[in-house]
Each structure stands twice: as C-alpha cells, then as structure tokens.
Design a protein around this nucleic acid. Structure first.
Lengths: 244, 244
DNA sequence: GCAATAGTGTCTATAAGACACTATCTT
DNA sequence: AAGATAGTGTCTTATAGACACTATTGC
C-alpha cells in the first residue's frame, strides 16, 4: 500500500466535507386515514417544495436525539412519540449543495395537534399518504420505504398501540390497522385475534362512556401490554403481487 | 429565528468535521457453523484488536458501493455476494478520533476462500459467531444486531439461498437454517415445508453425483426460485424469552 | 323501531409439528 | 449387514378466515 492509499483510508479530512442529516417520517392517524408530517422548505435548494422534517446533526448529539429534536421543532411534540431508525441514504448528488448522508427515522404518534411551522420551515402540515405532493430531494423514496416498514412492523410488533391513546378500544386498534394497511378487516375475527395474542393488550376493567357515534354498545377499554413481539403475528391479507 | 440558529441549521461547515464510514457484517457458513469476517486492526485506535471490515466512504461513491469495496479489499470477493443495509451508528465518542457516523451493511455469501489481509488490516479471518474475540469500537453491538437481522430475514425471505451454491439440496438449505438459528430442525418437516412455499426453490431435474458422506440416497438438486417473500414463512421455533 | 356496533360461536381450510416409514446410498 | 440420509405419509393441534348470531347502544 502506498502513501496515498494510506491517507485515503485513514484521514477523512483529505476528502471533501460530508454532512450528516436526519430526516423523519412521522406518521399519525387522523380521521381514519394515515398521515405523514411534511414541511414546506423556506430555503434553497427546493425552496417552496414539501419535504420530510429534518436537518443537520449537531456536535455531541446522538442520532436518535437529533431526530427527536427535529421533530419537536416542527410539531410541539406532545410526549408519547415512538421513534426508531429506518435507513440511511448517501447517493452522491442527492443534495446539490454537497455530499450529504441522511439517516432517516420513523416516528409514530397518536393524533397530534396541528403542527406549527418550525425554525427552518415556512410551513408544516399533515398530509394523507394517498395524496402527496411532489417531495424534495429523494424524500419520496424515503417515505415509501418508511411506509413499508411501518406496515411490516404492524404485523409482528405491538406498534399499533403507539398510534392510539393511553387506553383504547379494540375498534380503535382495528382502525389503526385498516388505516396503515389500507384494507378493511373483519371486526369479529380481529377482535378475537387481538385478545388471543399474549401481552398485546390488557384490560383496564373500564368501558367507554357512551356507545359509538352511530350506535352500538359501550366498548371495553384496554391498554398496551408488555409484549415486544406478537405471537402469533397479525398477518396482512396475502399480497400476491409483493411475493414475486 | 436568529442568525446563529440559521447557520446552525443550514451550514454544515460551521460544525466540526463529520466522517462517514461503512462497516460490513459479512456472514458465511463453514463446516456447518455460522462465521463472521473480522480483520485485525493495524493502526490506532484499537490497534491489534479485531474489528468488522470497513472504512471511510470516498467521494462520488454510493454507500452500497463503499460496502462492497471494503469487503472486496479484505476477501478477494468471489462474485455471488448479497449485500443489504443494516443500520447506522453515530453516538458521539464511538470513535475517539473524531465524530464518525457508521453505516453498517450485512453481506451473505456461500463458503468463501480464506480471506487475505487487506490494504489496511494486519490480518483477516472467519470467526465462529459463538466464539468471538473482543471487538473494537461498538462493533460487538453492530454484529449482534446484524445476526438478529439475518435470523429474522431467514424466516420470511429466500435469504438462505445466498449462503449456498448455485444449485443445492434441501439438506444443504436446512443446514443453513440450523447454523444461523442455532437449533436443529426436523428433516422431514423442513423438506415438505420448503417445497410447499411457492417460488422458494425450483427443481433442476438433477441429483447429486453420490449419496451423503455417511450414506443415504442421492438428493435432488434445486436452484433459487423467483420469490422475494416466503409465503407461508418458515418461522423459527417460538422463543418465549424474546417475546416479552 | 331501526341501524350500527361490540363481542361470541361455529365451521372450514391451511399450516406446524410429532412421528412413523420406505427407499437408497456409503462403509 | 449396518447405519445414515432423502423423501413421503399420517395424525394432532393451532391458526386464519368466513359467516352467523346476540346484546347494547344512538338516533
């Protein structure tokens, strides 16, 4: 190995600067539909275009902290938010300014207050995932992969409970699955299945104060149980097109 | 927003330099046991300690390319290697030299030739995952998460076929599952299950030239099918301890 | 009363796993 | 001949999903 190879391998300052950002795919359910948080960019590049909330990491700040901070700056961040890492993107040219590697995070929260525009965004709003504007950078790809991850994790983890309140009914939980998967589920079978999974939900002993808005009996209330994995899993209806 | 906030948000050059590396968890099966590729570091920090192969990304090089290059530099890279992203790690202080964000990759390959020491490693060798030396940096954590990911993906993707040759027997495929999961599987049930999954394997019409080393009939040969997901999945025997 | 919903019962098809068994190969 | 392995048959239990049904509520 010659000198130039040694330097190439061990001295990062020999390279052009690399910036690291975090981008957050924040999901919630509003009015029975899955929504993602988008901000309208106030600066170039892509000024005026919608993008995922995110920004450069700060010194002495860990990656999950940076994601939580960026999300808080855009929403007011009401406590109960589940955050987990999604993937990283570093294709040269994905940001026209310089080499940028973005670490993306998934965030799930119960229905949140309307977001407020943050420190570096002209506007912020929840968008239905079925009707999205054109996104800046490669954020459409990041969002697509985030949605697919969320749909997968709903199957074998208790993630759905992160989308509802502290206590919830089985129907509310079912509407989370229906919103994220985009398919209607059989109410009776879903009910029995959720209760059959050890540790998924536990009864509070309480019921709702009233019946449903359009009639029906009061529903029992549950809270999240202590399971980290669902066994048996709640599998999506088979998707032939995704198998091959 | 004041001027300092603006700069903090949009000018990465205002920060201390951040370096981005890729680290590769390369897995293969040798003698029925799962092995991971480790290199012995030749330079400070952690000189002389075993570590995952990896290094700084280069300008104009995409992340998966960087992972493939680092792996090739350590092994001689025999073509058929499956690579996929694992996760990113950026806790301040994880590298004593400077702020380093590492994007880790998982690589799977059939039994490879013995690795050769690469450009920036004093030594390189396959290690059984049950008997590992102490690792540099936070590589023990990265490796643990990589193993868990591999075990999961074996369940619902045809990943196991990446560990065997172009054609293979059902027994060879079963020994992949046994090595990665670390549990014995019932030969008869496994056989029937694999053949029942559409697109997992397809028959070549051929058989092995001889029976097994210790006797038994010649086995039919298969090649990987066109399925991207296994349905139904081949689930691991239930792990009570991992559920709660 | 009527319509909607919560929750339960039942039946069928599919899948997982235990076990037995035959055929074919190596030593 | 003996022992190991490939591959198949069969039975039991668990699960997924279709469908029916009762009870309770809002309007």
């Amino acid at each position: 190995m010659d000198e130039s190879e040694f330097l190439a391998g061990y001295d990062p300052r020999a390279y052009p600067a690399v910036a690291v950002t975090v981008d957050v795919v924040a999901l919630t359910i509003r009015g029975g539909a899955l929504h993602v948080l988008l901000v309208r960019r106030g600066e170039q590049p892509h000024a005026g275009r919608w993008a995922l909330p995110g920004g450069f990491i700060r010194p002495d700040e860990d990656l999950p902290e940076a994601a939580a901070r960026e999300l808080a700056e855009e929403t007011g961040m009401p406590g109960r938010v589940h955050i987990e890492q999604l993937a990283s993107y570093g294709t040269p040219g994905r940001d026209p300014r310089m080499r940028v590697v973005s670490v993306s995070y998934l965030a799930f929260a119960p229905d949140l207050p309307a977001p407020r525009a943050g420190t570096d965004a002209a506007d912020a709003a929840w968008h239905r995932v079925e009707r999205l504007p054109e996104l800046a950078f490669d954020h459409a790809r990041i969002l697509t992969e985030g949605l697919e991850r969320a749909r997968d994790k709903l199957e074998y983890t208790p993630l759905a409970t992160a989308f509802v309140g502290e206590t919830f009914t089985i129907s509310e939980l079912r509407s989370v699955y229906e919103a994220v998967w985009g398919v209607p589920l059989h109410a009776g079978n879903f009910h029995r299945k959720v209760l059959s999974v050890p540790g998924f939900v536990e009864s509070t002993g309480e019921t709702t104060e009233t019946g449903g808005a359009r009639g029906g009996p009061r529903a029992k209330l549950y809270r999240a149980g202590d399971a980290r994995l669902l066994h048996p899993a709640l599998l999506r209806p088979a998707r032939e097109e995704e198998i091959r």
